[in-house]
Design a protein around this nucleic acid. Structure first.
Lengths: 123, 123, 123, 123
DNA sequence: GTGGTCTAGACCACG
DNA sequence: GTGGTCTAGACCACC
Protein backbone atom coordinates (compact mmCIF):
# COMPACT_ATOMS: atom_id res chain seq x y z
CA UNK A 1 0.00 0.00 0.00
CA UNK A 2 2.75 2.44 0.91
CA UNK A 3 5.99 2.47 -1.03
CA UNK A 4 8.95 4.39 0.35
CA UNK A 5 11.39 6.14 -1.94
CA UNK A 6 14.72 6.45 -0.20
CA UNK A 7 16.02 8.72 -2.98
CA UNK A 8 13.15 11.14 -2.44
CA UNK A 9 14.32 14.49 -1.12
CA UNK A 10 11.57 14.60 1.53
CA UNK A 11 12.14 12.92 4.87
CA UNK A 12 10.69 9.47 5.29
CA UNK A 13 8.18 10.50 7.94
CA UNK A 14 6.69 13.12 5.61
CA UNK A 15 6.37 10.66 2.75
CA UNK A 16 4.41 8.30 4.95
CA UNK A 17 2.26 11.04 6.50
CA UNK A 18 1.40 12.43 3.10
CA UNK A 19 0.36 9.08 1.69
CA UNK A 20 -1.77 8.35 4.72
CA UNK A 21 -3.41 11.75 4.34
CA UNK A 22 -4.30 10.98 0.76
CA UNK A 23 -5.77 7.64 1.76
CA UNK A 24 -7.86 9.34 4.44
CA UNK A 25 -8.90 12.22 2.18
CA UNK A 26 -10.03 9.83 -0.51
CA UNK A 27 -11.98 7.86 2.05
CA UNK A 28 -9.99 4.69 1.47
CA UNK A 29 -9.34 4.63 5.20
CA UNK A 30 -12.74 5.34 6.69
CA UNK A 31 -13.74 7.71 9.50
CA UNK A 32 -13.41 6.19 12.98
CA UNK A 33 -11.69 3.10 11.63
CA UNK A 34 -8.50 2.03 13.35
CA UNK A 35 -5.09 2.91 11.94
CA UNK A 36 -2.46 0.13 11.85
CA UNK A 37 -0.45 0.01 15.08
CA UNK A 38 2.87 1.79 15.28
CA UNK A 39 4.79 -1.45 15.63
CA UNK A 40 3.01 -3.24 12.82
CA UNK A 41 3.39 -0.40 10.34
CA UNK A 42 7.06 -0.04 11.27
CA UNK A 43 7.63 -3.73 10.63
CA UNK A 44 5.70 -3.68 7.37
CA UNK A 45 7.84 -0.82 6.06
CA UNK A 46 11.03 -2.13 7.69
CA UNK A 47 11.79 1.16 9.39
CA UNK A 48 12.32 2.49 12.88
CA UNK A 49 9.13 2.62 15.06
CA UNK A 50 10.27 6.08 16.18
CA UNK A 51 9.61 7.31 12.66
CA UNK A 52 6.05 5.98 12.63
CA UNK A 53 5.51 7.49 16.07
CA UNK A 54 6.41 10.84 14.56
CA UNK A 55 4.08 10.28 11.62
CA UNK A 56 1.15 9.66 13.91
CA UNK A 57 2.07 12.66 16.06
CA UNK A 58 2.05 14.80 12.93
CA UNK A 59 -1.28 13.47 11.72
CA UNK A 60 -2.75 13.97 15.17
CA UNK A 61 -1.54 17.56 15.33
CA UNK A 62 -3.18 18.21 11.99
CA UNK A 63 -6.42 16.67 13.26
CA UNK A 64 -6.41 13.71 10.89
CA UNK A 65 -6.41 11.06 13.61
CA UNK A 66 -7.10 10.79 17.32
CA UNK A 67 -5.53 8.35 19.80
CA UNK A 68 -7.35 6.29 22.40
CA UNK A 69 -5.03 5.16 25.17
CA UNK A 70 -4.45 1.47 25.21
CA UNK A 71 -6.44 0.88 22.03
CA UNK A 72 -4.70 2.70 19.17
CA UNK A 73 -5.15 5.53 16.68
CA UNK A 74 -8.41 6.24 14.85
CA UNK A 75 -9.41 8.37 11.87
CA UNK A 76 -11.13 11.66 12.73
CA UNK A 77 -14.34 12.79 11.00
CA UNK A 78 -13.54 14.81 7.88
CA UNK A 79 -14.74 18.13 9.26
CA UNK A 80 -12.04 18.04 11.94
CA UNK A 81 -9.13 18.47 9.60
CA UNK A 82 -10.09 19.14 6.03
CA UNK A 83 -11.08 22.76 6.49
CA UNK A 84 -7.96 23.81 8.40
CA UNK A 85 -5.75 22.07 5.88
CA UNK A 86 -7.49 23.66 2.94
CA UNK A 87 -7.44 27.05 4.61
CA UNK A 88 -3.69 26.92 5.00
CA UNK A 89 -3.36 25.80 1.41
CA UNK A 90 -5.18 28.85 0.10
CA UNK A 91 -3.27 31.22 2.36
CA UNK A 92 0.02 29.87 1.02
CA UNK A 93 -1.24 29.89 -2.55
CA UNK A 94 -2.25 33.52 -2.31
CA UNK A 95 1.06 34.59 -0.77
CA UNK A 96 2.95 32.71 -3.45
CA UNK A 97 0.87 34.23 -6.22
CA UNK A 98 1.42 37.75 -4.92
CA UNK A 99 5.13 37.15 -4.93
CA UNK A 100 4.83 36.14 -8.58
CA UNK A 101 2.92 39.31 -9.36
CA UNK A 102 5.83 41.42 -8.15
CA UNK A 103 7.95 39.69 -10.78
CA UNK A 104 5.52 40.49 -13.56
CA UNK A 105 3.98 37.05 -13.96
CA UNK A 106 0.67 37.23 -15.89
CA UNK A 107 -2.65 35.82 -14.64
CA UNK A 108 -2.95 33.69 -17.77
CA UNK A 109 0.46 32.14 -17.16
CA UNK A 110 -0.47 31.21 -13.60
CA UNK A 111 -3.77 29.61 -14.63
CA UNK A 112 -2.08 27.69 -17.42
CA UNK A 113 0.42 26.30 -14.91
CA UNK A 114 -2.36 25.29 -12.52
CA UNK A 115 -4.34 23.53 -15.20
CA UNK A 116 -1.24 21.66 -16.29
CA UNK A 117 -0.74 20.44 -12.73
CA UNK A 118 -4.32 19.13 -12.63
CA UNK A 119 -3.97 17.34 -15.95
CA UNK A 120 -0.77 15.61 -14.88
CA UNK A 121 -2.26 14.55 -11.57
CA UNK A 122 -5.23 12.88 -13.25
CA UNK A 123 -3.04 10.66 -15.36
CA UNK B 1 11.61 47.49 7.22
CA UNK B 2 12.55 43.85 7.75
CA UNK B 3 10.94 41.98 10.60
CA UNK B 4 12.26 38.60 11.67
CA UNK B 5 9.99 35.84 12.90
CA UNK B 6 11.92 33.50 15.14
CA UNK B 7 8.87 31.24 15.42
CA UNK B 8 8.93 30.71 11.68
CA UNK B 9 10.43 27.32 10.89
CA UNK B 10 12.31 28.67 7.90
CA UNK B 11 15.85 29.81 8.67
CA UNK B 12 16.19 33.52 9.22
CA UNK B 13 18.71 33.88 6.41
CA UNK B 14 16.00 32.73 4.01
CA UNK B 15 13.44 35.06 5.53
CA UNK B 16 15.76 38.02 5.02
CA UNK B 17 16.77 36.96 1.52
CA UNK B 18 13.16 36.61 0.48
CA UNK B 19 12.20 40.03 1.77
CA UNK B 20 15.17 41.64 0.03
CA UNK B 21 14.21 39.85 -3.19
CA UNK B 22 10.74 41.33 -3.02
CA UNK B 23 12.18 44.81 -2.44
CA UNK B 24 14.44 44.39 -5.45
CA UNK B 25 11.69 42.88 -7.60
CA UNK B 26 9.37 45.74 -6.79
CA UNK B 27 12.11 48.18 -7.70
CA UNK B 28 12.16 49.68 -4.20
CA UNK B 29 15.88 48.98 -4.17
CA UNK B 30 17.13 50.22 -7.54
CA UNK B 31 19.55 48.67 -10.00
CA UNK B 32 23.22 49.44 -9.26
CA UNK B 33 22.31 51.05 -5.96
CA UNK B 34 24.27 49.89 -2.94
CA UNK B 35 22.88 47.35 -0.48
CA UNK B 36 23.36 47.99 3.24
CA UNK B 37 26.74 46.69 4.38
CA UNK B 38 26.98 43.25 5.91
CA UNK B 39 27.93 44.58 9.32
CA UNK B 40 25.37 47.38 9.37
CA UNK B 41 22.45 45.16 8.42
CA UNK B 42 23.59 42.61 10.98
CA UNK B 43 23.60 45.27 13.68
CA UNK B 44 20.22 46.65 12.60
CA UNK B 45 18.65 43.20 12.85
CA UNK B 46 20.68 42.23 15.93
CA UNK B 47 22.04 39.07 14.36
CA UNK B 48 25.46 37.72 13.49
CA UNK B 49 27.23 39.23 10.45
CA UNK B 50 27.92 35.71 9.20
CA UNK B 51 24.20 35.19 8.73
CA UNK B 52 23.91 38.33 6.58
CA UNK B 53 26.96 37.21 4.65
CA UNK B 54 25.04 34.05 3.89
CA UNK B 55 22.01 36.06 2.77
CA UNK B 56 24.13 38.08 0.37
CA UNK B 57 25.89 34.96 -0.91
CA UNK B 58 22.48 33.46 -1.66
CA UNK B 59 21.26 36.57 -3.45
CA UNK B 60 24.49 36.70 -5.42
CA UNK B 61 24.15 33.08 -6.52
CA UNK B 62 20.66 33.88 -7.77
CA UNK B 63 21.99 36.88 -9.69
CA UNK B 64 20.19 39.52 -7.63
CA UNK B 65 23.29 41.36 -6.42
CA UNK B 66 27.00 41.51 -7.16
CA UNK B 67 29.77 42.28 -4.68
CA UNK B 68 32.77 44.53 -5.16
CA UNK B 69 35.45 43.83 -2.58
CA UNK B 70 36.19 46.79 -0.39
CA UNK B 71 33.20 48.73 -1.72
CA UNK B 72 30.01 46.82 -1.00
CA UNK B 73 27.17 44.85 -2.57
CA UNK B 74 25.17 46.29 -5.48
CA UNK B 75 21.87 45.41 -7.16
CA UNK B 76 22.17 43.62 -10.51
CA UNK B 77 20.16 44.67 -13.59
CA UNK B 78 16.77 42.92 -13.72
CA UNK B 79 17.66 40.77 -16.75
CA UNK B 80 20.24 38.95 -14.66
CA UNK B 81 17.79 37.28 -12.36
CA UNK B 82 14.18 37.74 -13.41
CA UNK B 83 14.00 34.76 -15.79
CA UNK B 84 15.49 32.26 -13.37
CA UNK B 85 13.22 33.54 -10.64
CA UNK B 86 10.10 33.20 -12.79
CA UNK B 87 11.06 29.63 -13.64
CA UNK B 88 11.38 28.80 -9.96
CA UNK B 89 8.03 30.45 -9.30
CA UNK B 90 6.22 28.10 -11.66
CA UNK B 91 8.01 25.03 -10.32
CA UNK B 92 6.93 25.91 -6.79
CA UNK B 93 3.41 26.78 -7.91
CA UNK B 94 2.98 23.43 -9.58
CA UNK B 95 4.28 21.50 -6.57
CA UNK B 96 1.99 23.43 -4.26
CA UNK B 97 -1.00 22.86 -6.49
CA UNK B 98 -0.38 19.13 -6.64
CA UNK B 99 -0.26 19.02 -2.88
CA UNK B 100 -3.65 20.72 -2.85
CA UNK B 101 -5.03 18.17 -5.27
CA UNK B 102 -4.25 15.38 -2.82
CA UNK B 103 -6.44 17.21 -0.31
CA UNK B 104 -9.33 17.32 -2.72
CA UNK B 105 -9.11 21.00 -3.64
CA UNK B 106 -11.04 21.74 -6.84
CA UNK B 107 -9.58 23.46 -9.90
CA UNK B 108 -12.26 26.15 -9.71
CA UNK B 109 -11.38 26.96 -6.11
CA UNK B 110 -7.71 27.37 -6.98
CA UNK B 111 -8.43 29.68 -9.90
CA UNK B 112 -10.80 31.76 -7.79
CA UNK B 113 -8.07 32.19 -5.18
CA UNK B 114 -5.53 33.25 -7.82
CA UNK B 115 -7.87 35.80 -9.36
CA UNK B 116 -8.60 37.24 -5.94
CA UNK B 117 -4.86 37.69 -5.34
CA UNK B 118 -4.52 39.56 -8.63
CA UNK B 119 -7.45 41.83 -7.88
CA UNK B 120 -6.09 42.74 -4.45
CA UNK B 121 -2.65 43.46 -5.84
CA UNK B 122 -4.06 45.88 -8.40
CA UNK B 123 -5.74 47.98 -5.78
CA UNK C 1 42.14 11.52 -3.17
CA UNK C 2 41.72 15.23 -2.50
CA UNK C 3 44.81 17.32 -1.83
CA UNK C 4 44.45 20.85 -0.49
CA UNK C 5 46.81 23.62 -1.52
CA UNK C 6 46.90 26.26 1.18
CA UNK C 7 49.17 28.40 -1.02
CA UNK C 8 46.46 28.54 -3.65
CA UNK C 9 44.69 31.87 -3.52
CA UNK C 10 41.31 30.29 -4.14
CA UNK C 11 39.40 29.40 -0.98
CA UNK C 12 39.71 25.79 0.02
CA UNK C 13 35.96 25.25 -0.14
CA UNK C 14 36.14 26.01 -3.87
CA UNK C 15 39.14 23.76 -4.36
CA UNK C 16 37.26 20.88 -2.78
CA UNK C 17 34.03 21.61 -4.66
CA UNK C 18 35.86 21.68 -7.96
CA UNK C 19 37.60 18.38 -7.37
CA UNK C 20 34.35 16.73 -6.33
CA UNK C 21 32.68 18.11 -9.46
CA UNK C 22 35.32 16.50 -11.63
CA UNK C 23 34.87 13.18 -9.85
CA UNK C 24 31.12 13.39 -10.43
CA UNK C 25 31.50 14.54 -14.03
CA UNK C 26 33.85 11.68 -14.80
CA UNK C 27 31.38 9.27 -13.25
CA UNK C 28 33.86 8.16 -10.59
CA UNK C 29 31.21 9.00 -8.02
CA UNK C 30 28.02 7.48 -9.40
CA UNK C 31 24.49 8.86 -9.59
CA UNK C 32 22.44 8.33 -6.41
CA UNK C 33 25.48 7.05 -4.55
CA UNK C 34 26.16 8.60 -1.17
CA UNK C 35 28.75 11.32 -0.70
CA UNK C 36 31.05 11.10 2.33
CA UNK C 37 29.39 12.65 5.37
CA UNK C 38 30.15 16.24 6.26
CA UNK C 39 31.90 15.30 9.47
CA UNK C 40 33.90 12.44 8.01
CA UNK C 41 35.21 14.42 5.05
CA UNK C 42 36.10 17.27 7.40
CA UNK C 43 38.10 14.90 9.56
CA UNK C 44 39.80 13.27 6.58
CA UNK C 45 40.95 16.67 5.29
CA UNK C 46 41.62 18.01 8.79
CA UNK C 47 39.40 21.05 8.32
CA UNK C 48 36.30 22.46 9.97
CA UNK C 49 32.97 20.71 9.22
CA UNK C 50 31.44 24.11 8.46
CA UNK C 51 33.74 24.42 5.47
CA UNK C 52 32.59 21.08 4.07
CA UNK C 53 29.01 22.11 4.74
CA UNK C 54 29.70 25.08 2.52
CA UNK C 55 31.15 22.84 -0.18
CA UNK C 56 28.05 20.67 -0.17
CA UNK C 57 25.76 23.72 -0.17
CA UNK C 58 27.59 24.98 -3.25
CA UNK C 59 27.35 21.64 -5.04
CA UNK C 60 23.66 21.44 -4.13
CA UNK C 61 22.99 24.92 -5.52
CA UNK C 62 24.63 23.84 -8.79
CA UNK C 63 22.48 20.73 -8.88
CA UNK C 64 25.32 18.25 -8.42
CA UNK C 65 24.04 16.66 -5.22
CA UNK C 66 20.89 16.57 -3.11
CA UNK C 67 20.67 16.17 0.65
CA UNK C 68 18.30 14.00 2.64
CA UNK C 69 18.16 15.07 6.24
CA UNK C 70 19.32 12.43 8.62
CA UNK C 71 20.60 10.23 5.80
CA UNK C 72 23.29 12.09 3.89
CA UNK C 73 24.12 13.76 0.58
CA UNK C 74 23.58 11.95 -2.71
CA UNK C 75 24.71 12.50 -6.30
CA UNK C 76 22.06 13.94 -8.65
CA UNK C 77 21.38 12.48 -12.11
CA UNK C 78 23.61 14.06 -14.77
CA UNK C 79 20.77 15.93 -16.48
CA UNK C 80 20.31 18.07 -13.38
CA UNK C 81 23.61 19.87 -13.67
CA UNK C 82 25.43 19.16 -16.91
CA UNK C 83 23.76 21.88 -19.00
CA UNK C 84 24.30 24.68 -16.51
CA UNK C 85 27.89 23.58 -16.07
CA UNK C 86 28.56 23.58 -19.81
CA UNK C 87 27.17 27.10 -20.06
CA UNK C 88 29.51 28.27 -17.32
CA UNK C 89 32.40 26.54 -19.09
CA UNK C 90 31.92 28.58 -22.24
CA UNK C 91 31.51 31.84 -20.34
CA UNK C 92 34.79 31.22 -18.55
CA UNK C 93 36.52 30.10 -21.73
CA UNK C 94 35.53 33.27 -23.54
CA UNK C 95 36.68 35.53 -20.69
CA UNK C 96 39.99 33.70 -20.51
CA UNK C 97 40.51 33.94 -24.25
CA UNK C 98 39.83 37.66 -24.28
CA UNK C 99 42.41 38.12 -21.57
CA UNK C 100 44.88 36.27 -23.80
CA UNK C 101 44.04 38.54 -26.71
CA UNK C 102 45.14 41.58 -24.72
CA UNK C 103 48.53 39.89 -24.33
CA UNK C 104 48.86 39.42 -28.04
CA UNK C 105 48.20 35.69 -28.19
CA UNK C 106 47.30 34.58 -31.72
CA UNK C 107 44.15 32.64 -32.63
CA UNK C 108 46.28 29.89 -34.17
CA UNK C 109 48.23 29.45 -30.94
CA UNK C 110 45.04 29.11 -28.91
CA UNK C 111 43.55 26.52 -31.24
CA UNK C 112 46.79 24.54 -31.26
CA UNK C 113 46.73 24.46 -27.45
CA UNK C 114 43.11 23.29 -27.40
CA UNK C 115 43.74 20.51 -29.89
CA UNK C 116 46.72 19.37 -27.89
CA UNK C 117 44.54 19.12 -24.78
CA UNK C 118 42.02 16.97 -26.66
CA UNK C 119 44.71 14.66 -28.00
CA UNK C 120 46.20 14.13 -24.56
CA UNK C 121 42.82 13.42 -23.03
CA UNK C 122 42.06 10.71 -25.57
CA UNK C 123 45.18 8.78 -24.76
CA UNK D 1 43.60 57.41 -21.18
CA UNK D 2 42.34 55.16 -18.39
CA UNK D 3 38.66 55.08 -17.51
CA UNK D 4 37.58 53.42 -14.30
CA UNK D 5 34.29 51.56 -14.04
CA UNK D 6 33.13 51.57 -10.46
CA UNK D 7 30.34 49.13 -11.30
CA UNK D 8 32.84 46.65 -12.69
CA UNK D 9 33.04 43.50 -10.59
CA UNK D 10 36.86 43.49 -10.65
CA UNK D 11 38.74 45.53 -8.05
CA UNK D 12 39.97 48.94 -9.12
CA UNK D 13 43.63 48.03 -8.92
CA UNK D 14 43.15 45.15 -11.34
CA UNK D 15 41.30 47.31 -13.83
CA UNK D 16 44.17 49.77 -13.87
CA UNK D 17 46.86 47.09 -14.00
CA UNK D 18 45.16 45.37 -16.89
CA UNK D 19 44.82 48.53 -18.92
CA UNK D 20 48.45 49.43 -18.32
CA UNK D 21 49.45 45.93 -19.41
CA UNK D 22 47.57 46.35 -22.66
CA UNK D 23 49.22 49.73 -23.27
CA UNK D 24 52.64 48.17 -22.67
CA UNK D 25 51.90 45.08 -24.75
CA UNK D 26 50.73 47.18 -27.66
CA UNK D 27 53.88 49.30 -27.39
CA UNK D 28 51.95 52.47 -26.68
CA UNK D 29 54.09 52.86 -23.58
CA UNK D 30 57.60 52.16 -24.83
CA UNK D 31 60.34 50.00 -23.31
CA UNK D 32 62.49 51.82 -20.74
CA UNK D 33 60.22 54.86 -20.77
CA UNK D 34 59.10 56.19 -17.41
CA UNK D 35 55.70 55.35 -15.97
CA UNK D 36 53.67 58.18 -14.47
CA UNK D 37 54.47 58.68 -10.78
CA UNK D 38 52.29 57.04 -8.17
CA UNK D 39 51.06 60.39 -6.88
CA UNK D 40 50.31 61.86 -10.28
CA UNK D 41 48.40 58.83 -11.53
CA UNK D 42 46.44 58.70 -8.28
CA UNK D 43 45.48 62.35 -8.66
CA UNK D 44 44.58 61.94 -12.33
CA UNK D 45 42.22 59.08 -11.49
CA UNK D 46 41.05 60.67 -8.24
CA UNK D 47 41.78 57.57 -6.19
CA UNK D 48 43.90 56.57 -3.23
CA UNK D 49 47.70 56.47 -3.92
CA UNK D 50 47.77 53.18 -1.99
CA UNK D 51 45.81 51.64 -4.84
CA UNK D 52 48.31 52.81 -7.48
CA UNK D 53 51.13 51.58 -5.29
CA UNK D 54 49.49 48.16 -5.41
CA UNK D 55 49.11 48.36 -9.18
CA UNK D 56 52.80 49.03 -9.65
CA UNK D 57 53.73 46.26 -7.20
CA UNK D 58 51.61 43.86 -9.24
CA UNK D 59 53.13 44.95 -12.55
CA UNK D 60 56.60 44.68 -11.08
CA UNK D 61 55.95 41.16 -9.77
CA UNK D 62 54.83 40.16 -13.25
CA UNK D 63 57.99 41.68 -14.75
CA UNK D 64 56.23 44.43 -16.69
CA UNK D 65 58.04 47.29 -14.99
CA UNK D 66 61.12 47.84 -12.83
CA UNK D 67 61.64 50.55 -10.20
CA UNK D 68 64.72 52.75 -9.79
CA UNK D 69 64.94 54.18 -6.31
CA UNK D 70 64.45 57.90 -6.20
CA UNK D 71 63.64 58.12 -9.92
CA UNK D 72 60.46 56.18 -10.58
CA UNK D 73 59.14 53.12 -12.41
CA UNK D 74 60.19 52.11 -15.92
CA UNK D 75 58.90 49.71 -18.55
CA UNK D 76 60.84 46.42 -18.85
CA UNK D 77 61.95 45.02 -22.20
CA UNK D 78 59.27 42.76 -23.65
CA UNK D 79 61.25 39.53 -23.27
CA UNK D 80 61.17 39.94 -19.49
CA UNK D 81 57.45 39.41 -19.10
CA UNK D 82 55.65 38.40 -22.22
CA UNK D 83 56.83 34.79 -22.26
CA UNK D 84 55.98 34.04 -18.63
CA UNK D 85 52.54 35.63 -19.01
CA UNK D 86 51.79 33.72 -22.18
CA UNK D 87 53.07 30.49 -20.65
CA UNK D 88 50.68 30.81 -17.73
CA UNK D 89 47.87 31.64 -20.12
CA UNK D 90 48.33 28.39 -22.03
CA UNK D 91 48.65 26.32 -18.87
CA UNK D 92 45.35 27.69 -17.60
CA UNK D 93 43.70 27.29 -20.99
CA UNK D 94 44.70 23.66 -21.20
CA UNK D 95 43.50 22.88 -17.68
CA UNK D 96 40.19 24.57 -18.38
CA UNK D 97 39.76 22.72 -21.65
CA UNK D 98 40.40 19.37 -20.02
CA UNK D 99 37.76 20.12 -17.46
CA UNK D 100 35.36 20.78 -20.32
CA UNK D 101 36.26 17.48 -21.91
CA UNK D 102 35.13 15.62 -18.80
CA UNK D 103 31.71 17.19 -19.30
CA UNK D 104 31.48 16.04 -22.89
CA UNK D 105 32.17 19.36 -24.60
CA UNK D 106 33.15 18.85 -28.25
CA UNK D 107 36.30 20.22 -29.87
CA UNK D 108 34.24 22.04 -32.48
CA UNK D 109 32.21 23.81 -29.78
CA UNK D 110 35.37 25.00 -28.05
CA UNK D 111 36.91 26.35 -31.25
CA UNK D 112 33.67 28.10 -32.18
CA UNK D 113 33.65 29.81 -28.80
CA UNK D 114 37.27 30.91 -29.19
CA UNK D 115 36.69 32.34 -32.65
CA UNK D 116 33.68 34.24 -31.39
CA UNK D 117 35.82 35.80 -28.65
CA UNK D 118 38.36 36.95 -31.24
CA UNK D 119 35.70 38.45 -33.49
CA UNK D 120 34.14 40.41 -30.64
CA UNK D 121 37.51 41.71 -29.50
CA UNK D 122 38.35 43.09 -32.94
CA UNK D 123 35.25 45.20 -33.06
C1' DG E 1 24.64 8.71 13.30
C1' DT E 2 23.11 12.32 9.38
C1' DG E 3 22.55 17.41 7.44
C1' DG E 4 21.32 22.44 8.59
C1' DT E 5 21.48 26.81 11.12
C1' DC E 6 23.46 30.19 14.05
C1' DT E 7 26.91 32.62 17.01
C1' DA E 8 31.41 34.47 18.26
C1' DG E 9 35.61 35.72 16.96
C1' DA E 10 39.65 35.74 13.98
C1' DC E 11 42.23 36.94 9.72
C1' DC E 12 42.77 38.42 4.84
C1' DA E 13 42.06 41.42 0.58
C1' DC E 14 40.57 45.82 -1.01
C1' DG E 15 40.01 51.16 -0.97
C1' DG F 1 35.50 51.20 6.28
C1' DT F 2 33.97 47.15 2.81
C1' DG F 3 33.26 41.86 1.57
C1' DG F 4 35.13 36.93 2.05
C1' DT F 5 36.98 32.83 4.39
C1' DC F 6 37.76 29.86 8.20
C1' DT F 7 37.49 27.91 12.97
C1' DA F 8 35.23 26.42 17.17
C1' DG F 9 31.39 25.21 19.33
C1' DA F 10 26.43 25.02 20.04
C1' DC F 11 21.66 23.47 19.00
C1' DC F 12 17.96 21.52 16.04
C1' DA F 13 15.53 18.12 12.90
C1' DC F 14 15.70 13.56 11.23
C1' DC F 15 16.60 8.33 11.18
Amino acid sequence: MIILDYQDRRPIYKQIAEKLQVLINKGIIETDSQMPSVRKLAMDLSINPNTIQRVYALLESKGYIYPIKGRGNFVSPREDFIDAEKGQFFVDLKAHTQQGITMGVLLEEVIACIEKAYKEEKS
